[in-house]
Design a protein around this nucleic acid. Structure first.
Length: 602
RNA sequence: GCCCAUGUAGCUCAGUCGGUAGAGCACUUUCUUGGUAAGAAAGGGGUCAUCAGUUCAAGUCUGAUCAUGGGCUCCA
């Protein structure tokens, strides 16, 4: 969500409805648990939540009770009454609500508001005001806004969704609270649409589809977060990698290959052991030396750089590698292919002179956009993250790098947001986020300047003046990780991949056994045309064969019966259900080749 | 890592009060040879996640561990 629509949302009736529904939910929960403690309960993107500290864990049955109690509260047509209070009144009012008391202290000291958000936007001179909203017997510390009366909430457009744990103030050292997520809309129809959308999300879940389509598996007994690519998945990955390599050759990149492990020295020098030791796999002792599985490829590329004295004449260097790295992600964060412990970055490092930065920034951005679009992602937004308080590298270099990135964004006419101070300590970056078919955002590309490692590894080049200079280094991963990108592709296309990516592009379906010979001839003709094809020679009926191919989302089904054998044709059926009728196999091949070349969905 | 929930056949699930396991799909075989999303029959398949404990008896009760899911925190 961009800032403008976020602002509009904050002022919308929908926002007030959700905020007020959250209050009613808290009221209902307190009716069930009079001794319960309430924390915060803001509207969020698709609904709202409220955090509670309760004597026992909530069950799904509790949610139903809470929800029906909420409907009764809505029906009571209570007013939401705003009132400003003094600090003393506040402390008295919430004497038995410790979380609220903490919020009051926060507000009075000007630090945070009742949603736990920074109040930096408020003028410092203005004394913070405490306010409450009363609805029925329930009173909450709250800035609002709310609906005037609960009759503005449609009880049929409200639904509680799930319970989850959440740390108080998002701090893992503070108590774990119970968070109830719910949603509310202006009309039951909109609620229904949202619930349908959730269903669609479920249907496209890559964890289900990678199993159903026989693409990738995980194995509890062999280690969580480590993906196994089956032949169909591996075929797709090969196609993605081949395409990626071809594009990189065209884009002026060279390729390198580097090891998977390295001595502690590498990671001490790079600084990774200082900052990320917790999320690196533990070292293994080899001949008395600590070796680590690599969490990054960059130190290896730097070692290659340092094998020679480098001249400004050979820069820029663009070195790419599909480098597999291992990171010890915390157990609770693993999620299918989206968050794994072993993954392959489509990594590259661009090493260049200060003068070349401008051109390289634009070049790599343009390159990434073309790559993402080739995979069918058209909606792309940029996020520029700039220098944080604590940072390494000369401010002038930061300035230059940030300006180069911004000019590149503008040159490409991208919609963008700036995250001031949001960069890593070692350099500014551009991230690109795409929107998938369900409107969900995914960050894929990251383009990061690094003022740290060239220094730590003492990278140099000899300039025109004969002196040593420090080069600029840019890390970039465009697809991110192949595993995650693959998962996103699966969800974006719901498993029905464009023909050029489909692991099996065509399936030949003989109607009876006497058609098998001819079917095999057709299969062979397609294979000679470099199509990925198989023949279903099983004893199933044609209907079953079609269903099977359909479930595997094979783009083309070529049905072969007496008529086709006689006419020397194939009857083409698309997975959309469309019957293209019979045509000579050469015509079909031409049709398929066109769809492949155009990266068509079909 | 933290909170909560879950773990029974390859998949989706049932299994009552504790009495040594069941369905559909898938798989194998046989019959069937058919015109655009499931032809029929028979058969094989389970240390009920793992390890302890309670009990005459544990899929079922208890504990620990592992994994998965929903979130939180994190994400170079």
């Amino acid at each position: 969500m961009n800032e403008k629509s976020s602002e509009a949302y904050h002022e919308s009736q929908l926002y007030r409805i959700r905020h007020s529904t959250a209050h009613l939910m808290a009221a209902a929960v307190l009716e069930m648990f009079p001794e319960g403690k309430i924390a915060i309960g803001p509207p969020i993107e698709n609904g709202f939540y409220y955090d509670f500290d309760l004597p026992r864990a909530l069950t799904p049955e509790d949610l139903e009770k809470i929800e029906s109690r909420m409907r009764a509260l809505i029906a009571s047509r209570c007013d939401f009454v705003y009132q400003e209070i003094t600090p003393e009144e506040g402390k008295a009012l919430f004497a038995d609500q410790p979380y609220k008391l903490e919020l009051i202290d926060g507000i009075l000291s000007g630090g945070v508001d009742e949603d736990g958000e920074g109040a930096a936007t408020l003028p410092v001179s203005k004394a913070p005001t405490l306010s409450i909203y009363k609805s029925g017997t329930f009173t909450d510390l709250c800035r609002g806004p709310h609906v005037q009366n609960s009759r503005e909430i449609n009880p049929q457009a409200v639904k509680l969704l799930n319970v989850a744990g959440a740390y108080w103030r998002g701090d893992e050292k503070r108590p774990m609270l119970q968070r109830i997520y719910g949603t509310a809309f202006e009309s039951p129809k909109e609620l229904k649409e949202y619930l349908n959308w959730l269903e669609e999300v479920k249907k496209r879940d890559h964890r289900r589809l990678i199993r159903e389509l026989d693409l990738v598996s995980f194995h509890e007994e062999a280690g969580p977060g480590l993906a196994y690519w089956h032949p169909r998945g591996a075929m797709m990955r090969k196609i993605i990698e081949d395409f990626w390599r071809d594009r990189h050759l065209e884009g002026g990149y060279d390729f390198v290959y580097t090891p998977h492990i390295g001595k502690a020295w590498l990671w001490e020098t790079s600084g990774h052991l200082d900052f990320y030791k917790e999320s690196m796999y533990a070292p293994m002792d080899i001949d008395g030396q600590d070796y680590y599985l690599k969490p990054m490829n960059c130190p290896f590329h730097i070692l290659i750089y340092k094998t020679q004295l480098r001249s400004y004449r050979e820069l820029p260097l663009r070195w790419a590698e599909l480098g597999t790295v291992y990171r010890y992600e915390k157990s609770g964060v693993l999620h299918g292919l989206m968050r794994v412990r072993g993954f392959t970055q489509d990594d590259a490092h661009i090493i260049c002179t200060p003068e070349q930065i401008e051109g390289e920034a634009l070049r790599v951005l343009r390159f990434s956009l073309a790559l993402l679009r080739a995979f069918g992602f058209e909606q792309i937004e940029a996020y520029l993250s700039t220098r944080p308080e604590k940072a390494v590298g000369e401010p002038a270099r930061w300035e230059q790098a940030q300006e180069s990135l911004l000019r590149a964004i503008n040159a490409e006419g991208l919609v963008y947001q700036v995250d001031e101070g949001g960069g890593a300590f070692y350099g500014p970056k551009i991230d690109l986020k795409i929107k998938d078919a369900l409107g969900r955002e995914w960050q894929l590309t990251t383009i990061q300047f690094d003022f740290n490692e060239p220094e730590r590894f003492d990278m140099t080049y000899v300039g025109e003046d004969g002196n040593e200079h420090r080069p600029y280094m840019v890390h970039r991963a465009l697809l991110g990780s192949l595993e995650r990108f693959f998962g996103i592709l699966v969800e974006h296309y719901a498993g029905a991949f464009p023909v050029w990516l489909a692991p099996e592009q065509a399936r030949v379906i003989p109607i009876a056994d006497r058609h098998i010979d001819y079917a095999k001839q057709m299969e062979d003709a397609l294979r000679q045309a470099h199509l990925r094809v198989s023949t279903d020679a099983s004893s199933s009926r044609m209907n079953a064969k079609i269903r099977e191919a359909q479930l595997m989302k094979v783009p083309y089904m070529l049905v072969i019966g007496d008529k086709e054998v006689e006419a020397g044709a194939v009857a083409v059926r698309l997975r959309s259900g469309q019957d293209m009728g019979a045509m000579p196999v050469a015509d079909f091949i031409a049709h398929a080749e066109k769809a492949i070349a155009e990266h068509a969905l079909e």
